[in-house]
Nucleic acid binder design. Structure first.
Lengths: 329, 329
DNA sequence: AACTGATGTGTAATCGATTACATGTTTACA
DNA sequence: TGTAAACATGTAATCGATTACACATCAGTT
């Protein structure tokens, strides 16, 4: 492996000069610069990032902490992040917590030892220890999906998105609306979306039967199972619509409904959130909310880069969403 | 940031001893070891990876080069890779070539400067320059999806998978089978799959009308467009079945067919490859081939790790596949 | 002619770890 | 009791870059 010393020797200058030529710092005569660059070209020399980062404390790498690597949402966000970061020559170091809260914290510390310049956290829960861990490391962190106190956060407008969906169903004439949510450990998906549903039902004078409420775990299968038990529990006062807080669970529910011979949307309207590819191509196509995940990723990257340039940024950014009306309603 | 020197000072030993305690190398008395560990715990000290990797030439990071970050196939493979690597404490550095051949080469060199211990390349094409670049860096590289001369490669059995699909359609009585492929720059998807289709048609005495052949670009939209033009071109001798080399293109084609009022599979049978989530939930569900992408990722990681341990491994590994019969045929 | 500021280059310290080598202490066994 | 092997710890070089500081040259100004 050629090092800066080799280049220096070949160009008959000190390595200081080589460094200066490469980084455009300090003075280097045009003559010498050309000589150095030529040799760099020829040898294909590239500076060791480890050495560089040891000295400068910067690595050109941004760490990303994901709850799950294999979801469409994550992928889109990472895609957006990458697109922005690549422009500035940053690389991505990926970690996957597998929904394990402890790992979330572990990875924050681990990324620090790898001298990442910043961290983007796709948050799925909020807890004291996590907040503390974030404040303890002194590199910029940006959260997506949850509002973390004291941490710049990029959040989806979960409340209003869910409220819009609920209102829409009500305006379509539905009075008995079932709901499949997730654990409240996840304040955004589990908390806000359910809160909005309950609020809007109440505001419109509609009563909620607790038999209509199910809790899944984001998977298609859990949507299937929850739909099954909701129907079983609510015999006699079956709902006429279902609001699932994610597309995947909505699609699982649709599978069960189709299996049981329900017609959608006539006998049961279904809505989800996420605008997954599946939602578009399934029959009937699913009414859902598009959160523009890729844009979220881009925005996150942009904000993080601004932090790296020591710009002050706000603590909270709210993203826009769009209701996509399709044939499941 | 606390360093090894701080720990040494606090424990009243030299940093050598601290290093030994942390890495279980050399002798350290139980007494001192405990003292050091306690301080490490308390301070939350974690060694700087940059320093470590500068000295040892190992980073605990594996570079991954992807053609596209946002496809289901890539995601699954990365997921499998990550699962295996995480077990051994390795992290993943992700790069996305956006299907740009030049970037593929660029990233190989870039990853080297970042001192990654190995590289996994999801290859989409084969060319001289790429091979040369791989041979020029002296860290282990493993290719997935294409057979690269001289490079350990993990390949799907594209030929037989496509042959099986074609045979299956023929045995179902189809004689006029259309085909949507991709560029031959991609020897596996573009070359082998088409070759198998042509071979099997021939073997079975069936003639191929060139009007039945389309070339897409992996996207759903291109499947839609190609189906459209195939039908337009082949008026009078329309095919009765379609073999698209990817699920996404098959699904695009199905969309067009449904739009035009064709019944699937009665008026047109459709098959794809990839076993995407979409293929399962679309109506009718799509007959396809499961390549077990996640397992491929795991296997790739495992092979790379074995190379890192200086085990000799074969140059070529072939993966298994499974034909999933569904309702589109 | 003396001084100043811009330009060009080099010396050596530094970042935070690992590790070859040296040195001292115990233990075990002939 | 002598000595080799095992154990325990430290000194200092090293990895490959950046950068503070020093020094030399040269042009322009007074």
């Amino acid at each position: 492996m050629t090092t800066i010393n080799d280049i220096a020797q070949m160009a008959k200058v000190s390595r200081t000069t080589v460094s200066r030529a490469l980084n455009n710092s300090g003075y280097v005569s045009e003559d010498v610069r050309k000589r150095i660059m030529k040799i760099v070209e020829e040898t294909g020399y590239m500076p060791s990032q480890s050495a560089k980062s040891l000295r400068t404390k910067r690595s050109g790498v941004i760490g990303i902490i994901l709850p799950r690597l294999s979801t469409e949402t994550s992928t889109r966000v990472v895609n957006g992040i990458n697109e922005e970061l690549a422009k500035e020559g940053f690389q991505i170091l990926l970690t996957d917590t597998e929904l394990n809260k402890q790992k979330e914290i572990e990875y924050i510390r681990l990324l620090k030892t790898r001298h990442v310049d910043g961290i983007i956290l796709l948050a799925t829960n909020v807890n004291e220890e996590l907040i503390k861990a974030i404040h303890n490391i002194d590199i910029p962190v940006l959260a997506i999906g949850q509002e973390l106190p004291g941490v710049p956060s990029l959040v989806y407008d979960d409340y209003h998105a869910a409220a819009d969906l609920t209102n829409m169903l009500i305006h379509k004439g539905h009075e008995r609306i079932a709901f499949i949510g997730v654990t409240h450990d996840d304040p955004s998906v589990g908390g806000l979306r359910e809160q909005a549903y309950r609020d809007k039902m109440k505001v419109n004078g509609l009563e909620i039967q607790e038999t209509w409420i199910g809790q899944g775990d984001f998977s298609i299968e859990s949507g299937y199972e929850q739909m099954k038990s909701i129907l079983k529990r609510s015999k006699g006062q079956e709902p006429t619509a279902l609001f699932a807080v994610t597309d995947r669970m909505a699609i699982g529910a649709m599978e069960y409904l189709k299996e049981q011979g329900y017609t959608i949307p006539e006998e049961m309207a279904v809505v989800g959130i996420g605008a997954s590819a599946l939602s578009k191509y399934i029959t009937p196509s699913l009414t859902t909310i598009d959160y523009h995940n890729k844009d979220a990723g881009k925005k996150a990257a942009e904000l993080l880069l601004r932090q790296l340039k020591n710009e002050k940024i706000d603590k909270k950014f709210e993203l826009t969403y769009r209701l996509i009306m399709r044939n499941s309603v």
